Amino acid sequence: MLEGKVKWFNSEKGFGFIEVEGQDDVFVHFSAIQGEGFKTLEEGQAVSAEIVEGNRGPQAANVTKEA
């Protein structure tokens, strides 16, 4: 698991990027966000996630919002 913060997230398109210190930004799709209801993230929000290899490079999986 790694910790980072949301760089930006487009709720209409359902994707965005997470900033991780010392690494390239990581793509995040709404389907990777854990929880019930409408899955979205806010800019600057702290999150933790796993990194997996997607079709277009590294992407976030099992994204959870930090308190």
Score class of each variant (00 low, 15 high):
R56K: 10
E21T: 11
E36A: 12
G22V: 03
S48I: 13
Q59G: 03
E36G: 10
V63E: 03
N10L: 07
R56F: 12
K7C: 08
A46L: 14
E53I: 15
I33K: 01
V20C: 07
G16K: 01
F15Y: 14
V26R: 01
W8G: 01
L41F: 05
M1C: 12
K39I: 06
V47L: 03
A32V: 09
S11K: 15
F30S: 04
G4Q: 01
P58H: 08
K7V: 06
K13L: 10
A60R: 02
W8E: 00
R56L: 09
N62T: 10
P58D: 04
E19W: 11
E66G: 14
I18Q: 00
K39D: 03
R56N: 09
E42K: 14
V6Y: 02
N55G: 11
E50I: 15
N55W: 15
G16I: 04
Q34R: 10
I51S: 03
T40V: 08
G22R: 03
F9D: 00
F9I: 00
E50A: 11
E3N: 15
G4W: 08
G4I: 05
A46I: 14
S11P: 11
G37F: 06
E42S: 13
L2V: 15
I51W: 07
G44P: 02
A67Q: 12
Q45W: 10
E42N: 10
A32T: 06
L2S: 08
G54Q: 05
V47D: 01
G22S: 05
V52H: 09
E66N: 14
A61K: 11
F9R: 00
K65Y: 10
A32R: 03
A67P: 13
N62H: 10
K39W: 06
S31H: 07
E66R: 15
G57K: 05
T64P: 03
F27T: 01
A46C: 15
V6T: 02
T64F: 13
V28G: 03
E12H: 14
A67L: 12
V6F: 03
A60E: 02
A60H: 02
N10Y: 05
Q59E: 11
A46G: 09
F38D: 06
E3D: 10
V28K: 01
G14F: 04
A32K: 06
G54M: 08
N10V: 05
G16A: 03
K5A: 04
N62V: 10
E21Q: 12
A67N: 12
I33W: 04
E3Q: 15
A67S: 12
A49F: 15
F9A: 00
E42G: 09
A32Y: 06
I18T: 00
L41Q: 02
I18L: 09
V28E: 03
P58T: 09
E36K: 12
F27A: 00
G37T: 06
K13V: 07
E53F: 15
M1S: 10
E36I: 11
A60F: 02
T64A: 09
T40G: 05
G37M: 05
A46R: 15
K5F: 11
E43A: 15
P58W: 12
V47P: 02
A61Q: 10
T40F: 12
D25V: 08
E3S: 14
E19T: 13
V63H: 02
A60T: 03
F17D: 00
G44K: 05
S31D: 04
K39E: 04
G4T: 02
S11C: 14
G14H: 02
R56Y: 12
M1G: 09
A67I: 12
V26M: 06
D24M: 12
Q34M: 12
G54F: 08
I18G: 00
A46V: 13
K7S: 04
F38G: 04
G57V: 04
F38Q: 05
E12K: 15
E43C: 14
K39N: 06
N55L: 14
W8H: 00
G35M: 13
S48Q: 12
S11T: 11
S31P: 01
S48P: 02
T64M: 13
V26W: 04
R56S: 09
A67F: 13
G54K: 07
D25H: 07
V63S: 02
V6W: 04
V63Q: 01
E42V: 14
V6H: 01
V26L: 13
G22M: 06
K13Y: 08
G37W: 07
K65S: 09
M1D: 05
G57S: 06
G44F: 05
K39L: 10
A60I: 03
A60W: 03
G57Y: 05
F38T: 05
A49S: 06
N10S: 11
S11R: 15
V6S: 01
S31K: 07
T64R: 15
Q34S: 11
K13H: 09
N62W: 12
G4V: 04
A49R: 02
E3C: 15
G14S: 03
E66D: 11
